[in-house]
């Protein structure tokens, strides 16, 4: 009897408790976050979408409504096409070169061998460096008069290359810096992933006579897959946002050959005082980001 009574009362009781418990929490904690999110994320996004329909310099209020003309001009702009191609190229290089490199190094330095920790630190160092500083450092490295490249060239007695001034080479120079800068970050992700893999799998595989490659192929890779998927996700989003390293390196030049979408936004939107046009670029960038981010999460990261 008492048992049934408590059983009957229990659901109602717990239901009321949930109300009692969560509502104040909601009332107390949701508004500030919601307010900040609305004020600094939703509102600017909406504003950008609105500005993108105007020819506006940034001074005063936008008054000259021009419909979708900004988008029309944008999609016809050769430099924007180049920026899109470059963003794609950065993504491909990140996935095809940077992540395998990071994975390879991670499998090496995650073992408990002497010096592993210091190598981890060295590989991670470029990532810690500020993007602008990295850009400036590499500008000196690539410099054809006084830089490292000039020194190497003079050592081998060949003409010094001016990679950042060559519109066919500059983007590869930039890609090199990107790989150098960010592989450490992905390596760290992989090290964390590797350390969570149970050692007993490897011991069992070893007893069964599996080769190193078989162990990597059949244990490491499948168990590391969620980390790899996350890593690719970071690469894709990161490549879309790339800006502060390119500015000191090339500023998007020569002849717009190293423009990314964000540097394009800066040089065509902000420095030219075409805030309406810049907003249109921002809107396109936003749509691409959202599509890629959600599409990727939907398709590849559903189970993670």
């Amino acid at each position: 009897m008492t048992q049934t009574m408590t059983a009957a009362r229990a659901p109602g009781h717990s239901g009321r408790r949930r109300n009692n418990g969560t509502l104040p929490v909601l009332v107390l904690f949701l508004p500030p976050a919601l307010l900040i999110f609305t004020l600094f994320v939703i509102l600017p996004m909406g504003e950008a979408a609105w500005y993108s329909l105007y020819d506006w310099s940034g001074y005063g209020l936008p008054e000259k409504f021009i419909g979708l003309k900004n988008f029309e001009v944008l999609f016809r702009n050769g430099a924007f096409h180049q920026a899109l191609i470059n963003n794609g190229l950065i993504m491909v290089v990140s996935i095809v070169i940077q992540i395998p490199l990071a994975l390879w190094l991670a499998t090496m330095v995650s073992h408990r061998i002497p010096g592993a920790v210091s190598f981890r630190l060295i590989f991670f160092m470029p990532y810690v460096l500020a993007d602008v500083a990295a850009g400036l450092i590499w500008r000196f490295v690539y410099d054809g008069d006084y830089g490292l490249f000039a020194a190497i060239a003079s050592f081998f007695n060949v003409a010094s290359p001016y990679v950042l001034a060559d519109k066919n080479l500059a983007i590869y120079a930039v890609l090199g810096v990107i790989v150098w800068k960010y592989f450490g970050f992905h390596m760290m992700l992989f090290i964390a992933g590797l350390q969570s893999i149970d050692k007993s799998y490897y011991e069992a595989a070893e007893m069964d006579g599996a080769t190193r490659w078989q162990r990597f192929r059949n244990i490491t890779l499948p168990l590391l897959a969620p980390t790899i998927r996350l890593s690719v996700f970071f690469s894709v989003i990161g490549s879309l946002q790339l800006f502060d390293m390119i500015m000191p390196l090339t500023g998007g030049g020569p002849s717009n050959s190293t423009q990314t979408m964000v540097t394009f936004l800066y040089s065509y939107g902000i420095t030219r005082m075409k805030v309406g046009f810049g907003s249109a670029i921002g809107v396109v960038l936003f749509v691409i980001c959202i599509t890629l981010a959600f599409g990727y999460k939907r398709i590849f990261m559903r189970n993670d």
Partner: peptide
């Protein structure tokens, strides 16, 4: 000069 397409103004003055 070689590489003038990448040269900044201070570099140009320096040259």
């Amino acid at each position: 000069q070689q590489g003038y397409l990448g040269a900044t103004w201070p570099q140009t003055l320096g040259l």
